[in-house]
Design a protein around this nucleic acid. Structure first.
Length: 103
DNA sequence: CGCGGGGCGAGCT
DNA sequence: TAGCTCGCCCCGC
């Protein structure tokens, strides 16, 4: 299980698809749920490689510091902020409250 | 095959 | 809180 990179990718996607709306999850935790204790960086890699039309909630994935791990000047960054706020996620000084972490 | 670099994380100063 | 180091895994050179 989880031998090919396609299987790992699917595992991450499945785990991501289970993150409820209005909540967020860290890269490390996401990878862990997918069965990869040390796959945080892989998770990050996959996020930036997601197809544009994907229905996956990639915007609910943040780093362990409770912040968005994207360049503040990028379009993706603003897009993520926009989507999160639209779901009711409160962000203080760029940080997200621990109370809305999933799992 | 070594080396540097990532949408990472944990631990120490 | 801010930096730095080190460990992890995957990629491109």
């Amino acid at each position: 299980m989880l031998e090919t990179q396609e299987q790992r990718r699917e595992a991450i996607y499945l785990a991501l698809a289970q993150v409820p709306k209005g909540k967020v999850i860290t890269y490390g935790n996401l990878a862990k749920l997918a069965g990869m204790p040390n796959g945080a960086r892989l998770a990050g890699r996959l996020m930036c490689g997601l197809p544009a039309g994907s229905r996956l909630p990639w915007h609910r994935v943040i780093n362990s510091q409770g912040k968005l791990s994207l360049p503040e000047n990028s379009d993706s960054y603003r897009e993520q902020i926009r989507r999160l706020e639209k779901e009711g996620v409160v962000i203080n000084n760029g940080k997200i409250k621990l109370s809305i972490y999933a799992y």
